[in-house]
Nucleic acid binder design. Sequence first.
DNA 1: TCAATAGCTGTCCAATTAGTCAAGATTTCA
DNA 2: TGAAATCTTGACTAATTGGACAGCTATTGA
Lengths: 213, 213
Amino acid sequence: MTASPSRGSYKPGRIREQSRELILQAAEVEFARHGFQGSTMQRIAEAAQVPKANIHYYFTNKLGLYGAVLENTLNLWDTVFNELSSNDDPADVLSRYIDAKMEFSRTHPTASRLFAKEMISGAPHLSAYLQEDYQLWFKQRMSVFDSWIKQGKMDAIEPAHVIFMIWSSTQYYADFEPQILIATQTDTLTEAAFQEAAASIKHIILKGCGIRT
Amino acid sequence: MTASPSRGSYKPGRIREQSRELILQAAEVEFARHGFQGSTMQRIAEAAQVPKANIHYYFTNKLGLYGAVLENTLNLWDTVFNELSSNDDPADVLSRYIDAKMEFSRTHPTASRLFAKEMISGAPHLSAYLQEDYQLWFKQRMSVFDSWIKQGKMDAIEPAHVIFMIWSSTQYYADFEPQILIATQTDTLTEAAFQEAAASIKHIILKGCGIRT
DNA sequence: TCAATAGCTGTCCAATTAGTCAAGATTTCA
DNA sequence: TGAAATCTTGACTAATTGGACAGCTATTGA
């Protein structure tokens, strides 16, 4: 609203994209750690190494910034969600999906944490995104499981719970990292540790669902 | 520091306990939903239906209140943690433990969420509690699993990952309730839903670990 | 009954922080 | 080059909020 482009035959600068991205990244880390209210524009500005007023040039207000971060993050999630494709071989599909989710936890822990915090807070800013598309996606995947059950390819377990188990166990390694580190008495989760965890999860889920590998 | 009991042969009132408890309960809900920074003393006061200044009479400051809430909560957790007793029958032990954890998620969702938020934030106020005792507990349970593996009572899976799977999947139904509600298109998680979830988790974990029931 | 102690709260204050703004610097392209 | 558009930022403001505190009421036990 500050400067409205009246009829300028101007170039929609690419500085814009760079600066926005820089700020968004800093904001994601800040929001994931301290939540919406707990984050300060000042700290985000410092992390992004720009003056605070510069953030307000690119984003209308704090909520707008938060929304932009959330949207950014949700696009990432979508990619991983859709990794759960339908296929005739449940062992193959679920293995891939668990690996993809686990890889996401490893490479995008802050995105996972941001999402988790939103959920725990009652998803006040997420409910808009998680409506019809999401429910459709969920229903479709459920029906794939159902068909596997009908074909005797897996045990008769309510598919929703299987999906929830995959989500929870994989996200745990991003969201609850401090607890894992303390419990296992290590100080970083290595890539090898993630692979070992993924292997364990795959073993338990597949075998636990009666899926032949 | 306001009124120091110099040498009063007085009775350490029981009003104290009541008021403290009232405030703690309101604070737990508030902190679980909005986190430490996001919570305001004013809102907690309103929820507890006491003037804000009254909270400051019982608790030194916001951090002190938060610490008290956290300590309260951790005592609850301990009880459930210790449900994982050692016993010769893994099916029995794990079944009971999963049920206990699930029951905790159902009856104490705010405690679960508070704990989760702390973890996701890097456990800044929790690290003190989660040191030696916790690590000892974890090691001991791990060795129980190891003995089961040695006795051929379960598959050779790194015990830590099994415990993490139990924790994550059971806590999920408290922490990520909004997501579950949206996905399953219901508006409350009934006791029956919890039992069904517990049954699924038990099926998958036990069978997945190769534990005979 | 009556101090002494414990419990309560309205009012105020200082610090933090989101957001504004206007002036200036830089970039773009005709 | 130059003027229009875009970008930058220091300084300021208003609102929120944690916390202090003095004076008050209620409870207790002798």
